[in-house]
C-alpha cells in the first residue's frame, strides 16, 4: 500500500531501519505525550513486578525450565493480535482521528533471504542472554535503581552507532 501520510518524511535515508520512523505523524500534542508517559509507567511497573527484567528469568526461559516467560510473551502476543484484528476490521481511528496503519515488515533486497532478520535477530539474542535484559527492561531496571545498567545502555548506544556506521556493508 502506498504511503498516504502527508508528512514530508525526512527519514528518507533509513526508512527500513525503524518502524517508528515510518510512523512519524503530525506534531505530538502535550496531552498525547502525557498519555505515552502514562502507558510507559504502566509498562515499567509490570516489567519489574512480573520479573521479566530479571537475568534469572531469562536464563530460566532459555533453559526451558519454566512456563513463566513463554506465558507472558504468548499472552501479550495473543492480546495484541486480537486488538490489532479488532482495530483493523472495525476501521477504528486513533484518538487524533487518523486511520491506524501497521506497515508490513520488508524482506529486504539481499541475496540471502531475510538476512537482517535472522543475522540481526541472532546477534540480538546473544546480547539478550548475556545481559539478561532487552531494551525495555534496561530502562525499567535503571529506574529501579540498578545503576550499573547505565553501562549496558552506553554499550547498546555504541552498538546502535556501530550498526549505523556499517549499515551499507551488511546484508539486509
Amino acid at each position: 500500500m502506498a504511503n498516504q501520510t502527508t508528512t514530508r518524511g525526512r527519514a528518507g535515508t533509513g526508512t527500513q531501519g525503524a518502524t517508528a520512523t515510518a510512523q512519524a505523524g503530525p506534531v505530538v500534542s502535550p496531552l498525547a505525550l502525557m498519555g505515552y508517559l502514562l502507558i510507559g509507567m504502566y509498562l515499567g511497573v509490570i516489567f519489574v513486578q512480573s520479573e521479566v527484567v530479571s537475568w534469572f528469568r531469562i536464563q530460566e526461559m532459555f533453559r526451558f525450565q519454566s512456563f513463566h516467560m513463554y506465558g507472558i510473551i504468548g499472552m501479550a502476543v495473543a492480546v495484541g493480535a486480537i486488538s490489532v484484528q479488532i482495530i483493523k476490521r472495525m476501521g477504528i481511528t486513533s484518538a487524533t482521528g487518523e486511520p491506524i496503519k501497521l506497515s508490513p515488515k520488508q524482506w529486504g533486497d539481499s541475496r540471502i533471504p531475510g538476512a537482517r532478520y535472522w543475522i540481526g535477530g541472532t546477534l540480538f539474542g546473544i546480547g539478550w542472554a548475556l545481559l539478561g535484559a532487552c531494551p525495555g527492561p534496561i530502562f525499567a531496571l535503571l529506574g529501579g535503581g540498578v545503576s550499573v545498567l547505565v553501562m549496558a545502555l552506553l554499550g547498546a548506544l555504541a552498538g546502535t552507532w556501530a550498526y549505523s556506521a556499517m549499515r551499507s556493508k551488511l546484508p539486509h
Binding site: G80, G159, Y163
Partner: peptide, 29 residues
C-alpha cells in the same frame, strides 16, 4: 554488561526491532 549491551543495540537495529517490536508487535500483526 557492556558486550551484551552492545549486541542488544547492534542486533536490535540490524533486525529492525527487539522483543517489543518483533516478538510482540510483529507477531501480533
Amino acid at each position: 554488561i557492556v558486550g551484551g549491551g552492545f549486541l542488544v543495540g547492534f542486533g536490535a537495529r540490524y533486525a529492525g526491532g527487539c522483543t517489543s517490536g518483533h516478538a510482540i508487535s510483529g507477531l501480533a500483526d
